[in-house]
C-alpha cells in the first residue's frame, strides 16, 4: 500500500482551477521528485495534500486513511511534515525555541533534545545562533531553520517545496545530502524543485508537472536528456 496516494486531484484558487486530475503516489521510504515550470501547480498540489487548500475533486490517502478535508494539524499528527516555499519560522522566537516548538507533538522529550542536536549538526549555524530571534536571521538561514522545524517532527513523509531557493550551492549540496540520509533512514520524501539537477541526483522516481497535470512518471535518468526534458516542460 502506498504511503501517499493522490488520485485525480482537482484544486485551485478564486474559482481558477490549477490542478486538473493530478495523480501521484509515494511508497513508504521512497524519494520522489516533482519538477515543472512556474505555475504548473506544484505548490498548489503540496498545499492541497497538506490540508492548506481544500481540493474540489479527487482523493488523497495517507496510509489507509482519506485525508481530504483534514486540517494541517491533523496531518502533522499522522506523520506528515511540510517545508513551505516561504521561510516559515516564528520570527519573534529564538532559533532554539522554534525547534522545540516544532516538537510539540513528540511525546518523548529526551528524544527532542537529541533530535535538536542532530539538526544542529546538519545546520551548524542553527547551533551558533540558537538564541537569536529567528526573524533577524538572513533569508537563507531562515530556510535552514524551517527545514529543521519539519525534521523535528520525525515524519513518515517529508514534503519540501523548493528548499534550495536562496541557499548557497554548498549548502544546497549539504542539505540534499542530509535529506538523502533522512530518506535512507526510512522517511519518505516528496521533493518539489526548480533546481532540476539536485532533484534528479537525489530522487529515485520523478514526476514532471505541466499546466496542472502530470506529464511524466518514471526514472530520473531519462530526464538527464535536456532535449527530452525541455519537451516535457
Amino acid at each position: 500500500m502506498a504511503l501517499l496516494e493522490v488520485k485525480d486531484l482537482q484544486a485551485g484558487y478564486h474559482k481558477k482551477s490549477v490542478l486538473q486530475n493530478v495523480s501521484l503516489r509515494v511508497e513508504p521510504g521512497e524519494f520522489v521528485g516533482v519538477i515543472g515550470h512556474n505555475g504548473a501547480g506544484k505548490t498548489t498540489m503540496v498545499r492541497s495534500i497538506f490540508g492548506l487548500i481544500q481540493p474540489t475533486g479527487g482523493s488523497i490517502h495517507f496510509g489507509d486513511q482519506s485525508i481530504v478535508g483534514n486540517q494541517p494539524a491533523e496531518n502533522v499528527q499522522e506523520g506528515m511534515a511540510m517545508v513551505p516555499q516561504d521561510r516559515a519560522v516564528f520570527p519573534n522566537l529564538s532559533v532554539r525555541d522554534n525547534l522545540e516548538l516544532a516538537a510539540f507533538y513528540v511525546r518523548d522529550k529526551a528524544h527532542v533534545a537529541h533530535r535538536i542536536g542532530e539538526i544542529e549538526h546538519l545546520f551548524p549555524i542553527l547551533k551558533e545562533r540558537q538564541k537569536q530571534l529567528a526573524g533577524t536571521m538572513s533569508g537563507g538561514q531562515q530556510r535552514m531553520l524551517s527545514i529543521g522545524i519539519a525534521l523535528m517532527q520525525n515524519p513518515r513523509l517529508l514534503m519540501l517545496d523548493e528548499p534550495s531557493l536562496g541557499l548557497a550551492p554548498l549548502l544546497v549540496q549539504n542539505m540534499m545530502e542530509q535529506v538523502r540520509n533522512i530518506n535512507q533512514m526510512g522517511t519518505a520524501v516528496l521533493l518539489i524543485e526548480q533546481n532540476v539537477a539536485s532533484a534528479l541526483a537525489a530522487a529515485s522516481r520523478m514526476y514532471v508537472m505541466k499546466l496542472g497535470q502530470m506529464v511524466y512518471d518514471g526514472p530520473p535518468e531519462k530526464l538527464q536528456d535536456r532535449g527530452f526534458l525541455m519537451e516535457l516542460f
Binding site: N38, Q194, M230, F233
Partner: peptide, 11 residues
C-alpha cells in the same frame, strides 16, 4: 536581490 530564484528555465 535574487531576481531569478524560483524561476523555471523558460522564465
Amino acid at each position: 536581490d535574487e531576481p531569478a530564484s524560483g524561476l523555471d528555465p523558460n522564465s
